[in-house]
């Protein structure tokens, strides 16, 4: 079983990397890109008995820093 964890900087936390990507897209001629936020995806290969609640605890304790990041869990 796989789980997919998406970690993003919270709204309101400046994402300078996303901003740099947005500028680059504009400079390349891609119009209409109003904002870019860059995050990360973490794939977990899990035993069948690992629950979504377990993965949520992993997010809270390590995979995300909830001071600055939000996360979502997708159990595949």
């Amino acid at each position: 079983m796989k789980a997919r964890v998406q970690v993003m900087l919270k709204t309101g936390v400046l994402d300078p990397q996303g901003e740099a990507v947005r500028h680059a897209l504009g400079a390349m001629g891609f119009d209409g890109v109003n904002g870019v936020r860059q995050g990360k995806v973490i794939e977990l290969d899990l035993d069948e008995n690992v629950t979504e609640a377990d993965v949520t605890r992993m997010c809270e304790q390590l995979l995300a820093n909830t001071v600055i990041e939000s996360y979502s869990v997708d159990m595949g």
């Binding site: 936390v13 400046l14 300078p16 990397q17 740099a20 820093n65 001071v67 600055i68």
Partner: peptide, 11 residues
């Protein structure tokens, strides 16, 4: 300690 250290604003 509270807070977090983010990527430098100038990257």
């Amino acid at each position: 300690l509270p807070g977090a250290l983010l990527r430098n604003a100038g990257l």
